[in-house]
Design a protein around this nucleic acid. Structure first.
Lengths: 199, 199, 199, 199
DNA sequence: ATGTAAACGAGACGGTACGTCCAGTCTTGAA
DNA sequence: TTCAAGACTGGACGTACCGTCTCGTTTACAT
């Protein structure tokens, strides 16, 4: 996936930026509307008004394209807020994430994780491009909270984040119940209470 | 999935039990070894030494077959223990579940959830046949714990179970870290502390 | 190319005869109308109302299909006559061949020879299925003529047939002039005179 | 094919002669080695170390390029000899042609004729640039032979040339037998006998 | 014992999408 | 103005499986 700017060889016809954008938009639209079932390279090409070749030139697989489309759409949507309080920031962002994942974007994300089970490259792309960076951001917040004394030094940061975000992904993929704000709040309160209680 | 015994028409050649078993075994084996990518009806038929027709006669779709195979293999493996203490039972079972999901069975389960994102019928089959029954068992334990006074009356049982099992599914599908017993213990302790702390 | 009747295993769904015929007819029609340029497997499939798979199941390549179509159409058209006189038979057949090759069938034949230059299998199929059998028939006639004393024992049968048929193929492929009956007659007279004059 | 010198615009960068030669050489080499199957513009460009653009700028189609390459290589090889005797000249040249067509050049020629069946422009280019000029030379020889009384005034020159050259092309395209000198001699003797016998 | 009815193996069939190749066109910067 | 590089649209390739179908064969029970 050559979305970024690398050595920029400058030779030959430059990449068509409009096509790139159209492809990512089409990928997202299809994933949102029809889910992974209708997400074929041919469908994306048709919707974007682009030839299959152009897609294959820039993205090695269906999954890579899905991830790229998701990132393009998501990146602006889930920045962490900054309220001065780690816990407030965390809860606020958790609610925002739950809201986003409960909407169309959640279907895209679910599709990507599903595709990731089929194609390891997709999983890697998703983890490198999205999952791990988000986790790092979240870790930073928790660490800040520890510095400020809002959280105990004894908590296991990874476990804490798994406990907070895991349930959201779980409900997104296995709809045992709704992903609404009441639920998130109850969850956050409960889990944070556990963290606070740690030793 | 007509695995059960219904009106038993009794006419004609009876169903070949050996074939049924061979198919489920083959389905599991393929799902474990190659994941969802290699899980095609043709592959299952070939491995089971059975014709495609026979598979389609009894299972309506790939997903239904996967779920059936998973249930056949799983059912015996994750019964709840009974130690007299709800919390002990819960933790023990949680650890067992994590261990099982971290092994080959986890790959099968991941494949089923992935297929469920593509085909709603598969999701329904999985939820009806597996997810919800397990959840009911777990709820019963928690309720018993409340009765016995081990747990507060104020906890939200569903949230509690999401907080306990969600992270396991999360790590199974998005490998941000290992699914080992240390992690499960830390997680369980932390979440249960939160539940206990609930006023 | 399993056009003929072989061991007839009898197992499974029997081949759809109507499809086979439709495919051969479509192949011929396209070859006649558009030449080798428009002769794609997809076009044949579409015209025959058949899936590509069905074509590939029975014919290994474009060329094999073209040859099969040609044989199906041609076989009845160029049997040798039998006038009692070898030379008369020969000339009569030569004229018929020229007439046929000058028509739509000629375009099919030209296409096959062209495809044969690209794909050796096609050439082999054409030679085994058509060129050599025809040549053998012609040789038999010449041999009969020698037996009856109509032709000299000294002629080289292969050279004689090359001299008679070569020019027809030449004109068919390289249109330096028409392939009409006047020309064939002149040619036949001239060449046969040469044969008669041999020693 | 703008190989010749036209109005000489003189403006801008001049045509790269080395590229022109490299392209023709590459075209020939590929045609000889891999036949028409491997003869793609991209392959020629790669082998010649030239961009596709440059090829398309000067030759309108694959066939045109093939013909140009063939002419560049062939022109010097098949000039008519001059022994003073038309018949001797004719036979000598016939043998030379057969020898050449039986070698690598024959594969190129066969490829061109094949391509000509697919693309009329190629056929025209081949006929205008090669087939007809050669035929005119041959006709001149026959006419000279008639003038000198070596040949009858009654022979049909076109038929005579078809009878002599047709079989060579035939054997080149449909390998029913070798294209060796023994065969050519027998053929020439036989056909010329027929011409001589023509009243 | 004989018929009837469903299960089964085999494999042909119409389709969809795959990922690739090449055609022929275009857009850029350098020569 | 030519050229190298390489992006672009587009058509066909040959393959893999899908889910359906049509056979002939097998197995049981009901007559």
């Amino acid at each position: 996936m050559n979305t970024g700017l690398q050595s920029a060889p400058k030779l030959g016809r430059p990449r068509d930026e409009a096509a790139r954008v159209a492809i990512l938009k089409a990928a997202n639209a299809i994933l949102e509307k029809e889910g992974i079932a209708g997400f074929t390279i041919e469908a994306v090409a048709a919707r974007a008004g682009v030839s299959k070749t152009t897609i294959y030139r820039w993205w090695p697989s269906r999954g890579a394209l899905a991830v790229a489309g998701f990132l393009a759409e998501m990146e602006p949507k889930i920045a962490y807020p900054n309220t001065g309080s780690s816990l407030m920031d965390l809860v606020a962002q958790l609610k925002r994430v739950a809201a986003v994942y409960g909407s169309a974007a959640g279907r895209v994300l679910a599709a990507i994780i599903a595709e990731g089970q089929r194609d390891p490259h997709t999983l890697v792309a998703f983890m490198d491009g999205y999952a791990r960076p988000r986790r790092e951001e979240a870790k930073a917040i928790l660490r800040a909270g520890i510095e400020r004394g809002e959280l105990s030094r004894d908590i296991d940061i990874d476990v804490a984040l798994d406990a907070l975000y895991g349930p959201i992904y779980y409900r997104m993929l296995v709809p045992l119940g709704p992903l609404d704000s009441t639920w998130v709040e109850t969850l956050a309160r409960s889990v944070l209470a556990g963290l606070a209680a740690t030793k």
